[in-house]
Nucleic acid binder design. Structure first.
Lengths: 131, 131, 131, 131
DNA sequence: GTGGTCTAGACCACC
DNA sequence: GTGGTCTAGACCACA
């Protein structure tokens, strides 16, 4: 896999965000072992030190933990994952609302716009939703 | 005003989008004269040629027009402005839905999340909307 | 009147061509007196020496003649005018045919194309033609 | 090849027209790869940026397209080519009629003049056309 | 190697 | 002063 970065944020932060998303979306499952720092860095095309920093930061957020010689693992605590997921979603939603506000959309108008677009796209994911 | 750019899109495209937003949100009013190419470039902290390119492209979209020696002006055609505004909103909404999908949110969940966040923020714009 | 020149040919030649056209098209009538060199140069926005050279060259072609102190006059010899007119027309036609040939039009196709375009434009001048 | 430009039109526009003509006349065949921007600019004796601009504009008209790192190619769509060819021919014919009008030729006279000149030149292309 | 973008600095026509 | 064009030279991503 080729990872693409933009240069307006530190690479390690972009790596963090990417791994975060892989975890909260389930691409990396709870308890799953991550590749070794070296292998992971190679895969991402970055320096191992940069990957190390990203993983260390993620440890502080509790999303992953480190076992001495065994490597890094995704946390088993699904509550932490849920919290981070919620946090990312809120941030994203805030940015979206802000963006629409800049276009002159009031919150209710944004809501209507989103509903319209959902209906127009057919909500192909809808059938899977049975909560 | 300091303009901030990220590096994953050409600067002229980011400038275009920014000016687009200023127009569709009414910050730049229909018929209003833009700063001269050089002054505008200085304000944005970019090369005049880059600003020139952005304005030339915006001309093509009909959002602005120019008069020989008088400068660039926002179009008077409010319909064009409305169309671009709609187009930008759709693009933004599509990206938002995509981002939430990557977090594992199904469309309905995204919708609920947005509603919750709107309620939490108190919809301060809502009161003005009913007047 | 503002005269416009392009820079890929000497100014005097462009002036010559322009005066030629004024004569053969009848804008300057046979026998008519031209403005003084100085006045003519002023009108054209060029140096009097340049105008002088243009007029001298036109004298050689016989289109105008010079009377000591009275100034320059368009020739009375309508045959000379007709010849120059024919010459200019031929040159122009040759260039046109050449240009169409470069587009891949054979002479007959060019002829057809011209006829079509004439019909499309309605030949508004046709009524005046009673020769 | 040395390219010659006149100064009363932007160079990039003259380059565009020249390439247009090479395409519509078949000198550049549909699907053919153009020289690289730099090589083409060198050949034309202009700055690569100027050539770049010309090619970008031609892309917009659909006459050429480009592939990421492979270069620019003439379109395969012969209909687009035919349309542009027709458009150029009409423009050229219009200019010719206008030029003859300035010489005092009415449309029918222009037509006769063209026919005469065609006959005088022997229509050397005509014979080939009947084969 | 390819196309694409950006900058710096210059010149032009127009009014 | 305005917009527009052109050049020279640099850097980037892609493959």
């Amino acid at each position: 896999m080729q990872w693409d970065f933009h240069s307006d944020a530190p690479i390690y932060a972009q790596v963090m965000e990417r791994i975060q998303r892989m975890i909260v979306s389930g691409t990396l499952r709870p308890g799953e072992r991550l590749p070794s720092v070296r292998a992971f860095a190679l895969e991402a095309g970055i320096n191992p030190n940069t990957m190390q920093k990203a993983l260390t930061e993620l440890e502080r957020s509790g999303l992953i933990y480190n076992q001495r010689t065994a490597g890094h693992f995704v946390t088993d605590d699904s509550q932490i994952i849920a919290e981070v997921r919620k946090s990312l979603a809120e941030q994203q939603t805030r940015q979206y609302l802000q963006g629409m506000r800049e276009l002159g959309f009031k919150p209710d108008q944004t809501e209507q716009h989103l509903l319209q677009q959902l209906n127009k796209e057919g909500r192909e994911d809808h059938a899977n939703f049975d909560l």
